[in-house]
Simulated assay, not measured.
Amino acid sequence: MTDDLLSLLPKVDFTRRGFVATTLISGFTMAAGPVMAQTAIHTDSTGLTAGPVRIPVGIPTADGALHAYRAMPQGNGPFPTILVVQEIFGVHEYIQDICRRFAKLGYLAVAPDLYQRQGDMTKITDVQGAIAIAGKVPDAQVMSDLDDTAAWCRTNGGDPARLGITGFCWGGRITWLYAAHNPSLKAAVAWYGRILGQQSELTPKNPIDLASAVKAPVLGLYGAADQGISVDSVHQMEAALRNAGKEAEFLIYDGAPHAFFADYRPSYRKEAAEDGWKQAIAWFKRHGLG
């Protein structure tokens, strides 16, 4: 792929564009349903280095690398680094835009395609298909891929002493797991990540099972009207972390459903989303990622 074509990837159009030489979705995923073009936020790439990258990983992939979207300020850095963990719909335009939002604030932000070995999200057209792929992804593989992504960042503009993570929906749960996994992590922000759920061979632990192992300060952002994550479970996690002596804060937004930050979907709640973003950035800065 030429550099000219790569330069086109960060630009949004509100069509359903397809596969572009990686497993990253170009445009918005069809699996999430109709795009709310009037609320979908577009962050341009002016002043940024942004686009697909390939990350060497310890667990083999079909073509030898993990595909990811990277955005950072132009220049050599080192920049504070944020690992951006996809929602259940993969690394499509919404997740890529979040990377650019972080980059505009001075961060290196990278979103690896954590479903790459289990399925091609560019070909998935409904929620059930996305759930089926997500259900095949082992937690251990995800932790390894995030470790490899963090290692790649260290030699590609990132500051190894300033590493953070944030994730949404499926990625919110992963954020909790990674906060218990990586001792080098400085801070984490989990957006409506599941705390309790059915365990399996691939997903042997719930975040609440790992509360005592959490190694970094975590901010949890949740919606009071989330039909899949009860407020009671959020309070249980809060108590478990407090009892374990961990630093964590929770914000529960009245009337906000699941995916209230997803500006391209009907679930978007502007007031909660804007406050959550402000709180997330403040959390990272408070813990040395400014």
Rank of each mutant, 00 (worst) to 15 (best):
L219R: 15
E247W: 00
Q141Y: 12
R162K: 14
G197E: 01
A151F: 05
A213I: 02
D263F: 00
L196E: 14
A239K: 14
Y264H: 15
F260G: 08
M237Q: 13
P138H: 06
A256R: 08
D139L: 11
C153T: 11
S184W: 10
S230A: 10
R154Y: 12
A248C: 06
M237C: 06
P217I: 02
G220C: 00
V137W: 04
A248M: 09
Y264L: 01
Y222W: 04
M237L: 13
E271K: 13
L221K: 02
S184T: 14
Y192I: 02
E274M: 09
A216M: 09
A179D: 05
Y268A: 04
V137D: 04
V214I: 14
G157M: 10
A187Q: 01
H181F: 12
L251F: 11
S212G: 08
G157L: 09
A272I: 06
Y178G: 08
G223F: 04
Q141N: 11
G129F: 06
E274Y: 10
S267T: 15
A239M: 11
I229W: 06
R242D: 11
V214N: 13
T203D: 13
S267A: 15
I174T: 14
A259V: 01
P257F: 02
P257S: 02
I131P: 04
D226Q: 08
C169L: 05
R194V: 07
L163W: 11
R173C: 05
I174F: 09
G228K: 07
C169G: 10
A187M: 03
A244Q: 10
N156G: 00
A150Q: 13
A224E: 15
T203Y: 13
Y268G: 07
I174A: 12
Y253R: 05
T166C: 12
R194P: 06
I252S: 09
A240H: 05
T175L: 03
E238F: 00
C169P: 11
P204D: 08
P138C: 01
Q227M: 11
D232I: 13
A161T: 15
L210Y: 09
E247Q: 14
G129A: 07
G172Q: 04
Q236V: 01
D254G: 11
L251N: 09
G172R: 03
T175W: 01
L210A: 05
A248Q: 10
V189P: 05
Q236F: 01
